[in-house]
């Protein structure tokens, strides 16, 4: 695996939206405040296959015991389990260093290309469940969708993985969705957030 020396400018598909909205490019976010944040350039991997569990365990990564749930590593990485044999690792603090061709598959543990196939949006603030109720038919209220829960569903008619986890003390939703639909979904969520602003 060689890392490029010349090219290191991987771009979120929301990159152009940000050029028009520089305020959204803040590095630090306040997860207790209403906000939608683009984490698409942050590092993430996906693995699937009969050996995926074994490969992750060998790397000292604890995985959730059931499908559609997640756990957090001591260093703040998120480990999502999407089926009996599919796991995604999200690194909220690291930028993408590797791309799909570089994360190696091994026999029966196949790397998925979620760094590029999926945008990663993070919805924060006190009303995240109500905002999502304007976009999504799954009940995401805390009582039925607690921390650690994952819903694979349709958000504004786009397929998405919704993961309920914490940044610090604050509950947030990570929304992983088709990267090509990212700017559409960004606008749809912003529109739904409008009534909760100011």
């Amino acid at each position: 695996m060689t890392t490029s020396e010349k090219f290191n400018d991987k771009r979120s598909l929301l990159y152009r939206c940000y050029q028009q909205q520089p305020a959204a490019l803040t590095a630090e976010i306040d997860p207790s405040q209403l906000g939608l944040h683009d984490f698409s350039v942050k590092l993430r991997y996906g693995f699937r296959g009969p050996q995926a569990h074994a490969v992750l365990s060998a790397a000292q990564i604890t995985v959730p015991s059931a499908a559609n749930s997640l756990c957090t590593t001591p260093s703040g990485e998120l480990v999502l389990r999407l089926s009996n044999s599919e796991y995604w690792l999200l690194h909220p603090k690291a930028s993408g260093q590797q791309t799909l061709l570089e994360s190696q598959s091994t026999e029966q543990c196949y790397s998925l290309f979620c760094q590029d196939s999926h945008a990663w949006l993070v919805l924060t603030g006190p009303n995240i469940a109500r905002i999502m109720a304007k976009l999504c038919a799954v009940d995401l209220r805390e009582i039925v969708f607690p921390h650690g829960a994952i819903a694979q569903t349709s958000v504004a008619r786009v397929n998405a993985v919704i993961a309920h986890h914490c940044f610090g003390e604050s509950a947030v939703f990570s929304i992983l969705s088709d990267s090509a639909s990212a700017s559409y979904l960004w606008d749809a969520i912003q529109d739904a957030m409008q009534e909760f602003k100011d």
Partner: peptide, 11 residues
């Protein structure tokens, strides 16, 4: 069986 009760529009 994987995702639980969902609206039929997801299927």
């Amino acid at each position: 069986p994987l995702n639980g009760l969902r609206n039929s529009s997801e299927f």
